[in-house]
């Protein structure tokens, strides 16, 4: 464990909690892609099945349980409790175009052709593109609430910190996981355009809105 990984995990946790609080406090999930949240719930479920088979640390286990719990709570709030506020018309990204190729890729390119390992690989690939329905929704409506942009920023920051963590681990632990690194870099690149808008607009006190 190094400081970049720890702050990355905490940034991830902050993102998840910001989103839950936003929905809970405003009693609304307007502007939030339920599809992205379902994809994240699938990501955590398929990745953390090793909760049942291997113990790494108390930190590792508790974070996994918290991530999974929060992911399902978010999906519940969007599709059950506050479903009347869910903007399904704008959440029109075709997720099958992500899940099917990602599933195929996980079967083809993995570290080990075993059930758990293929699910882990699937979750890594899926996480790298799971935010696309959310970004698609923002580009479609042309705007995002400021709190939603804080959520996205924390999520992107988590990915960027993980890259620094991998550089650290490569130099100091001679550790690298090519699948995680390639998928992680792809995922971080997806946030670059958003980072630019966040810094030039949101941090200067303006609402994030895109030119028509």
């Amino acid at each position: 464990m190094n400081i970049f990984r720890l702050t990355g995990d905490l940034s991830h946790l902050a993102a998840i909690i910001i989103l839950l609080l936003k929905i809970w406090k405003t009693r609304s999930c307007a502007g939030i892609s339920g599809k992205s949240q379902i994809l994240f719930a699938i990501v955590f479920t398929t990745r953390y099945l090793d909760l049942l088979s291997s113990f790494i640390s108390l930190y590792n286990t508790s974070m996994k349980v918290i991530y999974i719990g929060c992911a399902y709570a978010t999906v519940y709030l969007i599709y059950m409790k506050f479903r009347a506020t869910y903007d399904g018309n704008h959440d029109s990204f075709r997720v099958e175009f992500l899940v099917v190729p990602v599933g195929g890729l996980a079967v083809l390119i993995n570290h080990d052709f075993s059930f758990l390992e293929i699910l882990w690989t699937f979750s890594i690939y899926l996480e790298s593109v799971a935010i696309l329905p959310q970004l698609f929704m923002i580009s479609k409506t042309g705007e995002a609430e400021t709190i939603t942009t804080h959520y996205l920023f924390c999520l992107g920051l988590y990915r960027a910190l993980y890259i620094v963590n991998w550089i650290w681990r490569y130099y100091f632990e001679a550790f690298f996981d090519l699948i995680a690194i390639v998928a992680g870099v792809v995922q971080t690149i997806l946030y670059c355009d958003f980072f630019y808008l966040y810094v030039t607009k949101v941090l200067k006190g303006k609402k994030l809105s895109l030119p028509a």
């Binding site: 990984r5 995990d9 991830h12 990745r47 090793d50 291997s54 790494i56 590792n60 974070m63 996994k64 991530y67 570290h111 080990d112 882990w120 993980y162 963590n165 490569y170 001679a174 550790f175 690298f176 996981d177 090519l178 699948i179 995680a180």
Partner: peptide, 10 residues
């Protein structure tokens, strides 16, 4: 690096 090591990252 041993790529088959347990996945210790989150």
């Amino acid at each position: 690096a041993d790529e088959s090591a347990a996945h210790d990252e989150l």
